[in-house]
């Protein structure tokens, strides 16, 4: 049974449609990530589920129960905010105990202590339990904020870019941690981010949103390999997918209605001589990143970015010929069209 379901939900703020006709269903124990740029409606979606906003239309269901009109306290959700929303005058322990000490719960203090120590251990903040919330570093604060959600056992955890204000190293660490915790506890999480790496590494399913619309929902593999349209394709992959006009690379497996070709770095093979069978490009610029090189190519008036082995000696002005493996094709409207099975290029 779906733990959380949104049925045709819309919400606007004044003239801005924050969320449009959104339907989404999250299964028990599933980790769903909403991915999209700022203003895509991801946070509004979370807030609609939490009950911090009321939808203009549509219904919100949690554990099969319609909660559209219910206040947050009646919904059995936990929310991790983007800002460290700790109670600054309380200690870490009291912050973690806060949701458990709700009169609605009436939890035994002995039990509270046990839960807090469990969660503190999980998040490596045991040493900090006696500290005031304001005496913590950013990473510790966010771990406590996550901990305050984890001490409860709600139907769903809602997380709004919880790692975005942390530095890269800590983000990578907590990303792994969070996924591990989710696997161990089998919790249901709806997680919002604009970071494709977080989405790819943690999600069971990714929902790509833009301008209030859920464009595609699927496993990370599906979203990456079979994006519905050019927008979804451009959200994932680094360097970003190259979108070039179809006439530039005519032939091969290209379907007749293709107008744009999407070339990820793994779709492009460079042959270091100008007399290969494919189109010829000129190296415009090489970025050395240490473990890999980003090669900026010019083909006609279009630019392509691809990866190259750092051992490969390329320099600006070199001419290379290109071969393409299974690129993505998009029609006039930007929707993906399947390749011609018969005429695949070698």
């Amino acid at each position: 049974m779906a733990e959380v379901a949104l049925v045709d939900v819309s919400k606007s703020f004044g003239a801005v449609d924050a969320v449009r006709n959104l339907s989404l269903s999250i299964a028990n124990g599933e980790f769903v990530v909403l991915l999209g740029p700022t203003g895509a409606g991801k946070t509004t979606t979370l807030r609609l589920i939490a009950g911090l906003e009321r939808p203009d239309r549509g219904n919100v269901l949690i554990q099969g129960r319609i909660v559209t009109e219910a206040v947050p306290a009646e919904r059995d959700v936990a929310f991790v905010f983007q800002q460290y929303s700790l109670y600054p005058h309380l200690t870490v322990y009291d912050n973690l105990a806060f949701p458990l000490r709700s009169p609605a719960r009436r939890m035994d203090e002995q039990l509270v202590r046990r839960r807090i120590h469990q969660v503190a251990e999980l998040l490596h903040v045991e040493q900090k339990l006696g500290n005031r919330a304001t005496a913590l570093s950013g990473g510790e604060m966010q771990r406590v904020a996550i901990g305050r959600a984890l001490v409860r056992e709600p139907a769903v955890y809602l997380m709004d870019e919880p790692l975005s204000s942390l530095d890269a190293k800590l983000r990578a660490e907590l990303r792994l941690e969070l996924k591990r915790i989710q696997r161990e506890l089998g919790t249901t999480i709806l997680y919002v981010t604009h970071d494709q790496i977080e989405a790819m590494t943690m999600a069971d399913r990714i929902g790509v949103m833009n301008e209030g619309v859920l464009i595609q929902l699927g496993t990370p593999r599906e979203i990456y390999e079979r994006p519905d349209n050019a927008y979804v394709a451009s959200r994932l992959g680094a360097p970003a997918i190259n979108l070039v006009p179809a006439e530039l690379l005519a032939g091969g497996a290209m379907p007749p209605n293709a107008r744009t070709v999407g070339l990820r770095t793994e779709h492009i093979r460079m042959i270091c001589s100008a007399d290969g069978p494919g189109p010829v490009a000129q190296v415009h610029w090489v970025e050395h990143l240490g473990d890999q090189n980003h090669v900026h190519l010019k083909i006609a008036s279009h630019s392509l970015v691809t990866l190259a082995d750092p051992a490969q000696q390329l320099k600006a002005g070199d001419r290379v010929s290109l071969a393409f493996d299974d690129p993505l094709y998009f029609d006039q409207a930007g929707n993906r069209v399947a390749a011609n099975e018969s005429g695949r290029q070698a």
Partner: peptide, 13 residues
């Protein structure tokens, strides 16, 4: 900040 109250609301305070 508002989000402290929102957090408390979700925490059933």
């Amino acid at each position: 900040p508002d989000y402290i109250y929102e957090a408390a609301e979700v925490d059933r305070a």
